[in-house]
């Protein structure tokens, strides 16, 4: 396990007491623990422009999942490499050490590196990289609390941050997850549903995350963990795309609000009628 020599490490083999308790299992029933239907999203709160130092930033809450993203750039590439006509997008994803049930290390672990790569590849098709040659844009994402679908929230949040930074984009990216337990498809799962062992023995079980460019109808991120039949996998991807389409209006709304704040002439008090026109601009 990688350790940071500059920090005082905790005891090497400490364990959370939760390991010794019983895992809460979901009762068989039609509704989910929080009373949602299978294809319902949790309430989403999205706000752009939360970090004043950054060029752009965003904060998202999906149920209890909380993610913050800050975007810096376009700026000069730190270690000058070859000349490139295309800009570079860099992405870092970090879970706060207290974000999950088990305590995380300060050093980025493999899961975080993998998540960062998925988010990067989800954003890359959306950004007009040829508009800022020789420079790079950095996206830093911190998951403050993980209550399921953290990766999907990270994708949505990072895209909102990029748009808030004024980076030219072809489209925004919305992320959404589906948990497949046997026959059931649970949209936007919470952490209990992600970890539940229900359906583990069934033929179909797994977790699908999709990043969608909604107005171009292109899938920019797709990852599936678990075992699914081909038909179920296709169905799960379709459900995810539906979920992403549900998040799109929230993203649009958030960006309109943050743009209005930046431009005094567009103060909401003076122009109520132009809301319709603003939507297209984002």
């Amino acid at each position: 396990m990688p350790t940071d020599s500059r920090r005082v490490p905790g005891p090497q083999d400490s364990r959370s007491p939760h390991w010794y308790g019983k895992h809460a299992t979901r009762q068989e029933g039609d509704t989910r623990p929080d009373g949602r239907g299978d294809h319902d999203l949790r309430p989403v709160y999205l706000h752009a422009g939360v970090v004043s130092q950054a060029t752009g930033s965003a904060y998202i809450e999906m149920g209890q999942t909380k993610v913050i993203a800050a975007v810096y750039g376009p700026r000069e590439i730190a270690r000058r490499e070859e000349f490139t006509m295309k800009g570079r997008l860099c992405c870092e994803l970090k879970f706060a050490t207290f974000a999950c049930r088990r305590r995380r290390q300060h050093i980025q672990d493999n899961q975080e590196k993998d998540g960062a790569l998925i988010v990067l590849q989800a954003l890359e098709p959306a950004v007009c990289l040829d508009r800022f040659p020789k420079s790079q844009v950095d996206v830093y994402i911190t998951v403050l609390q993980d209550d399921g679908s953290a990766l999907a929230a990270a994708i949505t949040c990072a895209a909102a941050g990029l748009a808030d930074a004024g980076v030219m984009m072809y489209d925004i990216v919305a992320g959404c997850s589906v948990r497949q337990c046997g026959e059931r498809q649970l949209l936007d799962p919470s952490v209990g549903e992600e970890l539940s062992q229900e359906g583990e023995s069934a033929e179909d079980h797994g977790m699908v995350t999709v990043g969608l460019l909604p107005s171009l109808n292109q899938v920019s991120a797709l990852t599936l963990d678990g075992h699914l039949q081909q038909q179920t996998a296709v169905q799960a991807v379709k459900t995810c795309i539906g979920g992403c389409q549900g998040i799109y209006p929230i993203l649009k709304d958030c960006l309109v609000t943050s743009t209005r704040k930046k431009i005094p002439a567009l103060d909401p008090k003076s122009s109520h009628a132009s809301t319709e026109g603003q939507n297209g601009q984002t």
């Binding site: 590849q121 899938v219 797709l222 990852t223 599936l224 075992h227 699914l228 039949q229 081909q230 996998a233």
Partner: peptide, 10 residues
């Protein structure tokens, strides 16, 4: 059975 799936590339 589909066991794991990932999109890669830009």
């Amino acid at each position: 059975t589909i066991a794991g799936l990932n999109k890669e590339g830009s």
